[in-house]
Each structure stands twice: as C-alpha cells, then as structure tokens.
Simulated assay, not measured.
Amino acid sequence: MEAVPWGEDDAAPHERIMQTTATLDGDGTDIAHARHLAAGFLARVRAERGLPVSQRAVDLTRLVVSELVTNALKYAPGLVVLDLRIAGDVVEVVVWDSDPVLPIARAADAGRVGQHGLEIVMAVAQGFEAQREPVGKRITARIALMDDPGGAVTGRPPR
C-alpha cells in the first residue's frame, strides 16, 4: 500500500486539503492498512483542524473502508485506489477499481452467508453512489463526522 500525504506541504495548515489517498495492490495486508489509514486520517482531522469527529464516525468509516476495499480487491483485477476526504460535515470514502461492473445491493436475506458488505455500507452511510469511470468504477460513501445530541447520525432522521 502506498499512501499519499493528506495536504500540500507548503500550504498553511488551515488551507490544506483534508484528504489522503492510498494505492492498494492486494498484498494481503491492504485491508488492515486501509482501516488504520482511515482511523489515522480522522484523528489528524480532529487534532490538526479541530473538527469534531465522533467515535461512531471513526468506527463506521473503518467498517465502510473495510467493506469497500475488500470487495474491490476481491472482484477487480489490478490496483485499487482509496481516497478519504472531508466535505463539510462528512467524510467521503471513495474507492476506485478497474472493473466497470457496478455493484448491486441484494435483497436482505438472514440465511445468506456472506455478501452483505454493500448492504452494510448502504445502511450506515448518509450517501452512497456508484459511477462508471472511463476505466473501471468509483464507489463513494459519505459518513457523518458527528452524531446529533439526540443520538441520531447527522443528516439522517432517527429510526
């Protein structure tokens, strides 16, 4: 896994792009490294920018990263690119892979073993999109950085 720094070195801290990118080659440790990268990124956002980031946001981001990276490495040949960035009050988890086939959420089935990753991502994310690219596809999931005082995730009504 090759990680790219999250901001421009010559930019003032408040002008830095809140983003980090990693290229994953499927070496067997990529999924754990990607989860660690996500947690470290959100810790830096909290420490260096003073943005509020709930523990729930960290946990959900790690889960979403794990599910999306696992699927990309399992189903697409070649490299996978993970991009994490802050957009307002959400963290965007973007995963690109070389397979142009868009994922399809399957109907819930408690008896099915495995293949629940996309269902999980869609259940915990405030936004989800899958787009074909000139080469491959890009999956984007958005996760609220904070919970509201009532316990609901920001941007999503309580259930």
Rank of each mutant, 00 (worst) to 15 (best):
A141Q: 12
A3D: 07
L84H: 03
I86A: 15
G151K: 01
L118K: 04
A38V: 15
L51M: 07
K137T: 09
A57Q: 08
H116E: 07
V113L: 12
P13L: 05
I143G: 02
A105I: 09
G151I: 00
G78F: 02
G127M: 02
P13I: 07
S54C: 01
E48C: 03
A22Y: 00
K137I: 08
R106Q: 06
T23E: 01
R85I: 09
V101C: 03
L42C: 08
A12R: 10
V93L: 13
D9P: 04
V113P: 02
P77R: 04
V95A: 06
A32H: 02
D148F: 00
E15G: 10
P52C: 03
T140A: 13
A47Q: 14
R156Q: 12
D30C: 03
G111R: 11
P100A: 14
D59W: 01
P13M: 07
G50V: 10
T21S: 03
R142K: 09
D148V: 06
D25E: 05
G7Y: 15
R106H: 08
Q55D: 09
L68Q: 10
T20D: 00
G40T: 14
V113G: 15
D109P: 05
I86H: 15
K74E: 15
V4P: 00
R62K: 15
G111P: 02
D9I: 12
D27T: 08
H116W: 12
D99W: 12
A57W: 01
D109K: 12
I143F: 02
R44C: 11
A107D: 10
T154A: 05
G117I: 05
I17E: 13
D10M: 10
M1G: 11
G155F: 02
I143Y: 08
Q55P: 02
V95I: 03
E2P: 00
A108I: 09
E15L: 15
P52G: 13
W6D: 05
P134I: 04
A110P: 10
P77Q: 14
D89R: 09
A3Y: 05
M18S: 09
E15K: 03
F41N: 14
V95C: 06
R156T: 03
Q55Y: 05
A12F: 01
A107P: 11
E119M: 03
D147S: 04
D89C: 11
F41Q: 11
S98W: 01
D9F: 06
T20I: 01
V80S: 14
G28T: 04
L60W: 04
V91A: 12
P13D: 05
G26Q: 06
A87F: 11
P52M: 13
T21H: 01
G7I: 01
L82R: 15
V135A: 08
G40L: 13
A39R: 04
M18F: 00
E8W: 11
V80G: 14
R142S: 12
L102Q: 14
K137V: 03
I143N: 02
I120E: 01
V81C: 02
T61S: 07
P157C: 13
H14I: 09
I86W: 09
S66A: 14
E8T: 08
A125K: 07
W96Q: 08
R159H: 14
T70R: 01
A152M: 00
K74L: 04
D89N: 11
D30S: 09
S98F: 00
D83V: 08
L102P: 07
Q115N: 14
I104V: 04
Q115S: 05
D59T: 11
V95F: 07
N71E: 10
A38Q: 10
I31R: 12
